[in-house]
Design a protein around this nucleic acid. Structure first.
Lengths: 348, 348
DNA sequence: CCTTGTATAGAAAGCGCTTGCTGTGACGTT
DNA sequence: AACGTCACAGCAAGCGCTTTCTATACAAGG
């Protein structure tokens, strides 16, 4: 039915071993023989059986990329960059590897299950993107899993996720704390004193770090934070809209709102507008990430640019062993404050 | 070194066959035996060897999803929806399948190579999203490949891509032509007569269909189209910005600009604003797709909503054999005109 | 009590490929 | 002229699992 190596061998009048060697090109084969084999491959339209070869060679060409939400450009951009370096067809890399993007939807169970699935497939490497979930039990399970993957020879790289020591994983972390701090300092510098903060889901490291940066900035300037000024939500527009209304309800005198990310910030802008407030005249708004659409908001969003594509590319290269891991296995990637029209001196 | 089925069998004091049957659960095994096996699996921390099992069973649990640009929410949303139905861990489906998203970057070669890679992995199903490339040679190669995949038992589903008859693929196509027509008719209805059009890349079906709809609308109302009114570009913001400047240069009297998609429309808005024109007072702007950020543009974008998530979910279900294919193997999915603030009656 | 049926477990033959080791001529070396 | 050396090519042993077929045990039927 389906064409096998043996069929090709028969047609080219060589042994299966020779065909395999031609295809893998890691063993000397006479040019004439090679040609004959290639011709047979072509004529028979032969396609290697991946599972069989993975089994025999005890390695696979699968590389897994875990993302929280594939519909979110934050992850899409990173995934695209990682993939471009992984090789995949047309990538810069040589060997053809199948980069697979797995969407965890932010669920801890899915995250683990995907790792098991990748382990099952004997993936060559795994890149985990985005913040981690701060649940002791889940973290322990994840770390154990990562450790096991690493031990089995799978290269594990974290991109935008805090290091997990003892797991053998290499981490490229984003300096969310520093970025958050810089952003709030910018607002304070403009004269804002009553700043609302729309945080992401509580149990995520990204959320916590950004919020810590924000608070550090407030503290550094002797501003006492009001508990009413922080609201938690999801990392999406809708959540930003609702949270902003809540903030306004709690304290209508806020002069600025800092959002957990750009999508949330857009939601915040919409809520403010719908409440009859002008940006930045009445309230300044700031986001985080600097996703492509942020510059198109009106006014354009002040935010912290994270070099998602660069970090992803680097993570991909490290995963492929084409770039050395940073010293100590961790590198912190800094964000850059982008001051635009959505923030200004508070009125009055 | 690594734990194998045989190790589990030894520990549970049963034959490998029995362990396999417990794990696959498609053959009667006494409850007590099953428990013993499960215990051994747990104690040894056994993980099935994917390639081996795929080889032996001649099937794999991989499902491929091809997208043009993973960083573009248009594809991200579809991919996410497809994946949620494919199963993957936590998906609605039962069996655990590995849904893999492959980023072609819009390149024909990559598209083909990815299909070969998936064929090599003996993927259970493949979903192709987004428009196809209109190159006769490439199309022939693709069709042949799809045919081969289908023949090998891989279910092939096209989502938002025109049907490829004779390939055995099931298609869910978007009514880009109808949507384009409706959109332009809306503008004509408002009184616009000089409408610029920023099309996508020439060789894509999506581009052509949307443009055809636009022209059909013009023709239906007896408006003679000026060749200067159409500019081709990429499906991104940047391209929209540049194309708009070009359109303004060619004919400053345009009263409306229709963009190939929402990202392009945002770029167009930026270019108009930078040129000192107000939207919609001076020029109306319309997009296509209704991606989440479109509503946050100021003014909110008039566009055609494509039910990306619904279509993706359906494609996923069909790929999994959990929903019947539409009659004739093709179903056209309609878009819905969303009239918002970016379009208005032309001045003067 | 023996036959037939039913439920469950095992033996073993692959699935299609890779690779260590073993030839086998053709050359170059003393 | 005898003998290493090389460059290739083939043999055959798996890789770890699935699955068909067969074996066993026990219950029910005649």
């Amino acid at each position: 039915m389906t064409v096998t190596l043996a069929d090709v061998a028969a047609r080219a009048q060589v042994s299966p071993a020779t065909v395999s060697r031609v295809l893998n090109g890691n063993y000397p084969v006479a040019a004439s023989t090679r040609e004959r084999v290639l011709k047979a491959v072509d004529e028979l339209d032969y396609v290697l059986n991946g599972p069989a070869s993975a089994l025999a060679a005890a390695t696979s060409d699968l590389v897994g990329i875990l993302v929280n939400d594939i519909a979110d450009p934050f992850f899409g951009i990173m995934a695209g960059a990682i993939q471009s370096e992984i090789g995949g067809p047309g990538g810069r890399a040589g060997g053809e590897r199948l980069a697979v993007v797995c969407n965890t939807g932010g669920s801890p169970e899915r995250e683990l299950t995907y790792l098991t699935l990748l382990q099952r497939q004997r993936a060559a490497a795994v890149v985990l993107t985005g913040g981690a979930i701060e649940d002791a039990q889940h973290k322990a399970a994840m770390d154990a899993k990562l450790r096991k993957l690493a031990d089995a020879g799978t290269r594990v790289v974290l991109c935008g996720r805090p290091q997990a020591p003892e797991t053998g994983a290499i981490a490229l972390t984003f300096d969310n704390r520093g970025g958050g701090q810089e952003l709030t300092e910018h607002l304070i510098g403009l004269g804002h004193r009553r700043v609302g903060y729309i945080a992401g889901p509580e149990e995520r490291t990204t959320t916590r770090h950004r919020l810590e940066g924000h608070r550090a900035a407030l503290a550094a300037h002797g501003i006492e934070e009001d508990a009413r000024w922080t609201v938690h939500g999801r990392y999406d527009r809708r959540s930003g809209y609702e949270a902003t209304l809540e903030l306004l309800r709690r304290d209508p005198s806020l002069t600025a709102v800092v959002a957990a990310n750009d999508s949330v910030a857009l939601g915040a802008c919409a809520a403010l507008r719908d409440s009859g407030l002008r940006i930045p005249d009445d309230v300044s708004v700031a986001g985080f990430d600097d996703l492509p659409f942020s510059i198109d908001a009106v006014p354009a969003l002040t935010t912290v640019r994270l070099p998602l594509a660069e970090a992803g590319a680097r993570a991909g290269r490290i995963a492929m062993g084409r770039e050395e891991a940073p010293l100590g296995g961790v590198a912190s990637v800094r964000g850059e404050l982008m001051v635009r029209g959505s923030t200004a001196v508070p009125r009055g």
